[in-house]
Simulated assay, not measured.
Amino acid sequence: MRRRSLLASSGALAAGFLAPAVLQAQGAKDFPSKPITLIMPWPAGSGVDLWHRAMADAAGKLLGQPVVVDNRVGGSGTSGPASMAAAAKPDGYTIAQMPVTLFRLPHMQKTPYDPMKDFTWILHTSGYTFGVVVRADSQFKSFKDVIEFARANPGKFTYATPGAGTSLHIGMEQIAQKAGVKFTHVPFKGGPEGWAALEGGHVMADADATGWAPLVDAGKFRLLCIWTEKRNPRWPDAPTLNELGFGLILDSPFGLAGPKGMDPAVVQKLHDAFKAALEDPKVVELMAKYDYPKRYMNTADYAKFAQQQFDEQRGVVDQLGLAKKN
């Protein structure tokens, strides 16, 4: 009896050690068995939101479960991913769009996450086409006019962005530093708020991604400059920052990630579905409409790129004098 009892105890103990690995393998095999949440840290209706909704729909069809977009706006795009890192289980059912701001803010202030420890990278997808727009009736006919006004009126040129610490904010401050002028930043929670503020005359300009494109095409806004390497054929008259003498190319690259500790097999399934979704006709259509270049990287390459971005953003923050004080 004692021997049978010991054997039974040993078997139960062994099963206890094996259970997590077995369950993890089974979970990866059956994944997904319920809807997946994709946290979108930007407002509903923005270009990046609409594009990710199309991508989520395409990936969901491939995965056999819906991918539901959950807008969690705040913290210049970091609140949603930070909440995922803090609270979500690493089971693949919660993922997030990862703005470059996540790599920058830890150098500027205390953050509730460590970008190099708290996330599992899935795939890199794209970047933005940024530009500066003014109202069609603005006194600023060119970006040179902006610089001349700012030089003559320090701090009086006001511009909107989707938030403090975003690539738009940092980019405008880099421009001001290079030009030797001072701008006044007016942060909002996302693109639509900034466009509305510009339309209402509450700010002089808006620096944002191409959510402003319909307003430019309709003749309500004027595009003064674009931040890509080359001019955009949709707006051939808008010069690049390089052409204007600033020596800057800024596109704020982004991708998808989940909480730390995800099963590699689950990561692979998500990676494969979203990589395929990049070729979906609706996704391709919206990429063209909102000028999102395809910048695919696999899981391993994205992880390396994340470290590179973290290191580069430290240098930018230091250069602008925005580093947090210890």
Rank of each mutant, 00 (worst) to 15 (best):
S83H: 09
A196R: 15
D301T: 03
Q109A: 13
G190F: 09
M108T: 04
P99R: 10
D91M: 11
L6I: 09
G77I: 09
W51M: 13
A300E: 13
T299M: 01
L18F: 03
L223S: 03
T111V: 14
A96S: 15
L123F: 00
D311E: 15
K61C: 10
A277D: 00
S83E: 14
Y113T: 04
I95F: 08
L215K: 15
S5N: 10
K89H: 08
R151S: 12
I175C: 12
Q24D: 13
Y128W: 04
A323W: 00
G219T: 02
F221D: 02
G255Q: 00
T299N: 06
T94S: 13
A300G: 03
A88F: 04
F254Y: 13
A257H: 06
V133T: 15
K156E: 14
D217Q: 15
P293C: 09
L13N: 07
T228K: 08
A85W: 02
Q308P: 00
K141R: 13
Q313T: 08
K294F: 01
A207K: 05
Y290D: 01
R3Q: 06
D91S: 10
A273K: 08
L223Y: 00
F310L: 07
Y93S: 08
G180N: 11
P41F: 11
Q308K: 15
G201L: 07
D91K: 08
G165F: 08
E279S: 13
A15W: 11
V68Y: 01
S33E: 11
G211Y: 12
A197M: 13
A152C: 07
A150D: 06
E279N: 13
H185Q: 15
N242D: 14
D291N: 03
P233F: 01
Y159S: 12
A58W: 03
L224H: 05
F188D: 14
A82T: 10
L7P: 00
K230T: 12
M98N: 06
L50A: 08
G245F: 05
D251M: 09
K29T: 05
Q309R: 12
L224W: 03
A265K: 15
P253L: 05
W235G: 00
P239E: 02
G171W: 06
S79W: 12
P35F: 11
S9C: 13
W42Y: 14
E193L: 12
G247S: 06
K117Q: 13
V69L: 14
A179P: 10
G180E: 09
A205L: 11
I147S: 06
P154M: 08
V216N: 04
I147F: 12
L6P: 01
I226S: 06
T210Q: 04
F188K: 11
T299L: 03
G180I: 03
E285G: 03
L105Y: 05
F130H: 11
H107M: 08
P99Y: 07
F221V: 06
F246C: 12
K269S: 05
V100F: 09
S138E: 04
Q97M: 15
